[in-house]
Each structure stands twice: as C-alpha cells, then as structure tokens.
Amino acid sequence: MSVTISSTEPALTTRQLTLAYDRAIVIRDLDLVIPAGQITALVGPNGCGKSTLLRGLARLLKPLKGTVYLDSASIFRLSTKEVAKQLGILPQSPTAPEGLTVRELVAQGRYPHQSWLQQWSAEDDRFLEQALAITGMVELANRPLDTLSGGQRQRAWIAMTLAQNTPILLLDEPTTFLDLAHQIEILDLLYELNQTEGRTIVMVLHDLNQACRYADHLIAVKNGGVYAQGIPSNIMTEAMVQEVFGIESRIVHDPVTHTPMCIPISRKARLA
C-alpha cells in the first residue's frame, strides 16, 4: 500500500477559503498549502477554527466562498467517492453503534473502492487485514468496539481510515481522551505511516510539545486565520505562544528529540 509522492508538491491547497457555521464565519479568506508527504499539525486555542478548517479540507463543510484543491482539482468538483480514494478523515471522537465489531468497522473503510457490481474483493480483504495488522488490532478484530479501551478504540478507527488506503490522512485530535502512553502510541503509529509509506498526515493537536515533536510543518491558527506556519523550530517562539494562546512561556530545547519545547508560566507566583 505504499504511496509515493514527491515532497515538493502540495497535497492540498486552499484558495480564499471561507468557512462558516450557519452564518457565523469561522475561517476567512484563507490561502493555505499543505505539503505532501509530510506531517502537518494544526495548533491553536479552543474555538480558533482549527477543527473547522480540518472539516473544510475534508469537504465535510461546504465553504461560503473559495475552495480546496486536491491535485489541482477543486474537491467539490470531484465525486465524493473519488475524493474518498485520495483523502481519509477521522473526525473528533467518533461513535459507533453498540455491538459493532472492529472488523465490521474497518471493513467500512473499503466503501470508496467498491461498487454495486463489486461488493467485496480479495483486494478489500488484503487491505482490511493489513490495516488490522499495522494498528495491532488483529487479536481484537472480532471484539465489539464498546468492549475496548479508549486507546484500542482509537486504533480501530485509525485502522478504518487506513483500510481506505488514501495518500492523505486528516485526523481531528486523534489523542483526545487518551492517557499519555496511548497518546504516544497513536502518534508513533502515525509517524511510522508517514515514514514508511510517505502518507501526508494533517492533524489537529492540543499538546504543543507533541506537535513540535511529530510535525514537519506546524500551522498556528488564531481567530480563523493562520498566525504562523513553518517548521516547528522556526515558528515556535515565546512571542507566538503569547500571541496565539495568550500565555507567557519559555521555549527550551527538548533534550530527547531536539525540537522546541514550551513551558507555560503560571500566574501563581508561588510556582515561579
């Protein structure tokens, strides 16, 4: 399932993208390039529009204005099934009906590759098994999702998007509600997928330090626009954290990964 893309070309491009819920504009006139073959992390405070932006990139939200380009074609011009062969999206904390097994869930990922005539092929089987293997879900494949731990459940959902076999993978807070060990496990898995198969990964992350560790490209979102973007060591500054998150911090050198590390400064004097 290897996907090779030259890292110079864009995976997704937005032009004057304006996104709104009802009539409240969340993202305004955004021009953005998501580099192919890299891990991009979207960071920003609650309500800044990063999740909305991700949904817009995945054509889940119809823009008020502007569009998103996938391989130079507007994703709203392509059939939604065609887009689903190129781009997988894992929304924030998805829920499955009670009793759905991991295998049944992961099998749904093959939908864009099937048709009325071709319901389930040997190739579908192969991608299903592969997705289970990569995520370490083979042993749990026949278990209902509601009997699994949060981390296992999240791995099952990721397996579903892997079975979809798309060069681009968008994930909205893939580590929410997971403990630290499971957070690292999920992020390592995504890193491996990027390294071994060259998949483009775009994810919303809350933890700035994790974003710096795993992302090649960091996008700081503020008030519905991009405040700064680039490699983490360039844009992760005390000034940026102050501007975007409104807190004082020190940026230090992460001794393990040699990426920037943000230490927030508490207002409580006794901690200083």
Binding site: L60, L90, P91, P94, P97, Q108, Y111, Q164
Partner: peptide
C-alpha cells in the same frame, strides 16, 4: 442496507468515506 449501516457511524465518518 449497506449505506444505512454507514450512516450509523455518524455523518462526518460516512461523508468522509464517500457516502452521499
């Protein structure tokens, strides 16, 4: 029936998988 099963995963997931 197949499409209705996908709807039970939620709108965003179903749309993301290419369901109209």
């Amino acid at each position: 029936s197949r499409q209705i099963t996908m709807l039970t995963l939620g709108d965003d997931v179903a749309k993301g998988l290419g369901l109209r």
